[in-house]
Design a protein around this nucleic acid. Structure first.
Lengths: 138, 138, 138, 138
DNA sequence: GTGGTCTAGACCACA
DNA sequence: GTGGTCTAGACCACT
C-alpha cells in the first residue's frame, strides 16, 4: 500500500538523494501514509522511478533498517517495522520534550520565536499537507 | 553588539557547520538582530565557543565576505557591511519549513506522529514555561 | 591510539567483511582497547591494510555512526563517540537483563546450559583475550 | 520426540534462518537431544511456529537430507538418520565462542563492557532465578 | 589528506 | 523476483 507515496528528489537542494528518500519515508510514517507492516517500493523499482542507481536506494533503506524503522526480508521485500520503541508514557514524554527543547533552541538561533513556531504548527494542522510538501513552484 | 546572538550547531543535520553559521548570521541580519556596522565574534572566539576548528569559522566569514555581507578589517575584526539581506516572509518560512520537516522526520523515528507533536506544542502554548525551560538564557 | 587494533578478516566465515569490521571494533570497545575519543584508522588506510575497497570500510564506519558508536568529522577522521547512552542505572540493568535473557534463551536452543555459559564467561575472565580472539589455528 | 527442541531464531544475527535451523538440529543431535529415528517437526508445523515461509524450513531440511543427516519418508515425515554428527568439545566451544563474541559486541553498543557483563553473569550464578525467568518453560 | 556521495556493474543468497 | 555484498572509479566537500 504505497500507492500514495510520491517521492520527489531535488538535486539542487544539496541534500544527498539517499537522505531525501529517508526523510520522505519518515514523513510518510509521521503523517500516517505509511503504517506498520506496509511494504516499501522495491529497491529496484524505486531506483527506476527516481532514475537512481539501485545502490543509492538500497543505502537509504539500509540506514532505515539500522535505525530500526524498517525491516527487510531477504527475497521478499522491505517493510515498515513494528518495533515501535517500547517506552513508558513517561519516558516517551521525556524524549519528546528533549527533542522539542533542542528544536526550539535551534530554531531560535535562526531568529524564530516559540510563538512563531507554534503558529506554524497550528497552520500545519489547518492545512495538513500544504506546509509539509516541497515547494516545487520556485 | 552580538550579545544577542546565540549560535547553535546541529551536527546531525548533515548541513556543514560553516553553512549553519552563514545562515544564522544572514537570518540575524534579516530580522534586525544584526545591523550595519555591528561586529561579529572573532574567528577564534567563536571557534572556541562552538568547539570548532577556527578554519571552519574562517571559512564561513570568508564566504560572507565574498558575498559582500561582511567586511574584514585586518587586525580589527569582522563587521556587518551595509549590503541588505533581502529575506521575504516567504523565504523565512521556507527555512522554518525545512527545519520543521527535518524535526518531524526525526521524531517519527521515535514513533511520534505529526498529530502528537502538534498536540504537544499546543500544550506548551497553554503552559508556556512548563515544558520549555529557558532556551535562551544560558 | 589504535596501534593495538589488529583487524583480521576471515573470508571463509560467510560473515560479510563490513560486519566483521564492525564486530571487531565493538569488541575493542567492550574490552577497553578503544575508548571515547580515540580515532579509528582512516577509511583508506584500513582499506589498504585489509586489501579491501575503501567503500567496504566506509560502510562499516557508516553503520557504526548511525548506531551512535562513532562520530565522524568531515576532513578530520572517525572517532569513538562520547555519547554513552544516557540511562539511569535501573534502565541500564533492565536493558542488560533483557539482552542476557535473549542470549541465554538463544544459546539454550543450541544445547548450551546456563551453567555452561557462566563457566565460559568465568574462563574468559581468567584468560581475557584467549577466548575472544579468532581461532585461526584451524 | 522433539518436544524438548526449542528453535530460536535471531533475525539480527545476519545468519540466514535456514542455517540457524540446520545448526540447531545438528547441535541437538550432537548432544543427544535428538537420536536416530526421531521425527523432526513437519515443515509446515515448524514454519508456523517460527513464522517462516515453509520454503525456508524445507530448504533447511533438504540441505540436511543432502548431507545424509535426515531422511525424508514421503508422506510420513522427516527423521534423523543414523549418520553420526561428530562434534568435539572444541567444536561445541567454537559455536559458543561465536555466540558470545556477537553478544558482547552488541552489548558494547549499549555501553556495556566485558567486565560488566561478566559481573552480571556471576551475579546470576549467585541468585539463579532472580535475573532469568524461565527461559525454557514457555 | 580526511570522509561523503553516486554510478556501474558483477555475483550471491533467499523465497 | 527480492535484497545483500563488493569492487572500481569518479567527483565533491571539509580541514
Amino acid at each position: 500500500m504505497y500507492d500514495m507515496l510520491e517521492f520527489t528528489l531535488d538535486p539542487k537542494s544539496g541534500v544527498p538523494f539517499y537522505k531525501q528518500i529517508i526523510l520522505q519515508i519518515e514523513m510518510a510514517i509521521a503523517d500516517g501514509r505509511l503504517k506498520t507492516g506496509d511494504q516499501l517500493p522495491t529497491v529496484r523499482g524505486l531506483a527506476v522511478d527516481l532514475s537512481l542507481n539501485p545502490n543509492t536506494v538500497a543505502r537509504a533503506y539500509s540506514e532505515l533498517e539500522i535505525r530500526g524503522i524498517v525491516t527487510t526480508q531477504q527475497g521478499s521485500g522491505t517493510y515498515i517495522s513494528d518495533k515501535r520503541i517500547e517506552m513508558s508514557d513517561v519516558e516517551r514524554e521525556k524524549v519528546l520534550a528533549e527533542m522539542v527543547r533542542t528544536f526550539v533552541s535551534n530554531a531560535s538561533s535562526y531568529g524564530f520565536s516559540i510563538k512563531e513556531i507554534i503558529e506554524y504548527f497550528k497552520e500545519i494542522e489547518r492545512t495538513p499537507t500544504a506546509a509539509l510538501k516541497e515547494e516545487r513552484s520556485q
